[in-house]
């Protein structure tokens, strides 16, 4: 049994302007110790997917359906009490902005101890020792001395380390990281990514890594989910995805990327803007921006189906596979430096 199995997850927000379908039929599964990357641009539904799994969407005006089976039990059907026992214990989460994600008026020690005592019946002393241990594990220098400091006394990178320590303090089976390095500088980002990889080996947690950065996904994920306008457009093993991308949107993302290793005279841009989720386009949601659009794309929603070659490589596009392989090869020729 998969650790987490998400089936046809849908979340919509009822706003004054109408219903926004923020997540529309997302399915995936995650095994123990695996890292799943979710890429997409802002508004693609990647964060909302995870907030829905965690039950962290604002309750008012939000409707979710589908299943998120955690070790066989549907998280969406759990009572608040049961769900709280899972949150921060079996599944924990870190967020994009380390500057605002910690309570400014409590010491980091108290926030870490709270995380332990919410799920373990242990004394203050034991919880504190555990907190120091985790702060050391995430590389906070002089952890014993700094445990009584307040968040504003730490730099952004250090605060993200504290967040990671807090997320891992109860040995979770799954860590959801929502753009954990986006607000950080590139050298700090490298530190955090390194740290997360190392800790994953030590703690054996599975990770869902949400990001808009294809580079970060390539470096961290085993499996990648590409989302566009609330739907999954492609889902594949990381080497497959970068080696033989099958969806025009994925091509667009890859072509848009300025690269460190290759000279590109001109970026291959995706024309237009992402659609409004209030009134998304009919058929394939990417069709108004797609250079390969056909009549069928405007009316029929393409299903997420395996490619003929690889049953693990899922994609949602009406194009025939031969054209896709040709286009993918053309794109790689243009953008990728030879690996070697």
């Amino acid at each position: 049994m998969a650790l987490l199995e998400v089936k046809d997850l849908r979340t919509s927000f009822h706003t004054e302007d109408g219903i926004v379908g923020a997540v529309d039929g997302v399915s995936f599964s995650l095994e123990k110790g695996e890292t799943l990357g979710i890429v997409g641009e802002s508004g693609s539904g990647k964060s909302v997917t995870c907030l829905t799994i965690m039950g962290l969407n604002a309750k008012r005006n939000t409707v979710s359906s589908g299943e998120a089976l955690w070790k066989g039990k549907n998280l969406l059907d759990m009572k608040p009490r049961e769900l709280r026992d899972v949150r921060g214990n079996e599944i924990s989460m870190i967020f994009q902005d380390p500057m605002t994600s910690l309570n400014p008026v409590q010491t980091i020690g108290n926030q870490l101890i709270e995380a332990v005592q919410l799920h373990r019946d242990v004394s203050q002393r034991v919880a504190r020792a555990r907190a120091v241990e985790l702060l050391k594990a995430v590389g906070i220098p002089r952890a014993e001395g700094r445990i009584d400091d307040y968040p504003h006394q730490f730099s952004g990178g250090m605060r993200q380390r504290v967040m990671i320590a807090m997320a891992l303090i109860n040995d979770p089976d799954l860590l959801i990281a929502d753009e954990p390095t986006t607000a950080l500088d590139v050298t700090t980002q490298a530190q955090i990514i390194n740290l997360m990889k190392r800790l994953q080996e030590d703690f054996g947690s599975a990770i869902i890594f949400i990001t808009h950065d294809l580079g970060v996904v390539a470096e961290t994920a085993d499996d990648v989910l590409v989302m566009y306008a609330a739907r999954v457009v492609e889902h594949a093993d990381v080497d497959q995805l970068f080696g033989r991308p099958q969806h025009p949107y994925t091509w667009g993302l890859m072509g848009s990327l300025p690269r460190l290793e290759t000279d590109l005279d001109r970026l291959i841009q995706i024309p237009g803007q992402p659609p409004s989720l209030l009134r998304p386009p009919a058929g394939c949601r990417f069709h108004p921006r797609c250079p390969h659009v056909m009549e069928v794309c405007k009316t029929t929603v393409p299903e997420l189906v395996p490619t003929q070659r690889d049953p693990e490589h899922l994609q949602a596009c009406h194009l025939d596979e031969e054209t896709k392989d040709r286009e993918a090869a053309k794109l790689l020729e243009a953008t990728m430096a030879k690996a070697g």
């Binding site: 994600s101 910690l102 919410l118």
Partner: peptide, 19 residues
């Protein structure tokens, strides 16, 4: 954001509110 963090830790609503 830190209120979301507290909920993600599994803190009950009462605790989120008070502390």
């Amino acid at each position: 954001d830190f209120v979301r963090t507290a909920r993600a830790k599994g803190a009950p609503e009462r605790r989120v509110l008070f502390s």
